[in-house]
């Protein structure tokens, strides 16, 4: 039995919303990073689902690029977080008030 496309869209919408809300309400910068990853993965669900639904491979190609970019982004992001932690021994967003947020 085929799963209808709308299920996938709803799933990716939910995952995206969880990520979005996570970025907005969580204060730990690692959790925020994870939430951003959720948002990106919701996108990948969309691309793959639409790609198979439309019989168009370019969506899957896009996923490869998006995954690579996400990996690069996490590498740089974690490096920044480590540098931040060495300075202030904290990764709580609320502790960074040198610059008015």
């Amino acid at each position: 039995m085929d799963v209808p496309i709308s299920y996938y869209v709803v799933l990716s919408g939910l995952v995206f919303s969880i990520g979005l809300i996570g970025v907005l309400i969580r204060r730990n910068i690692i959790i925020i990073l994870l939430s951003v990853e959720l948002m990106l993965n919701a996108t990948n669900i969309n691309f793959v689902a639409f790609s198979s639904y439309l019989g168009n491979l370019s969506g899957q190609v896009f996923v490869f690029f998006a995954l690579t970019v996400a990996a690069a982004e996490v590498a740089v992001g974690l490096a920044i977080i480590i540098a931040l932690y060495r300075h202030s021994s904290s990764i709580n967003i609320d502790d960074f008030r040198l610059l008015k947020w």
Binding site: I29, L40, N46, F62, A66, E73, G77, I81, L84, W101
Partner: peptide, 24 residues
Amino acid sequence: SAKYFVLGAFSSGILLYGISLLFG
């Protein structure tokens, strides 16, 4: 740098989700 990263990645995520819906 950290603030730029968090908000930049966040906005890229939003942009990318828009692109994926448009692809659909």
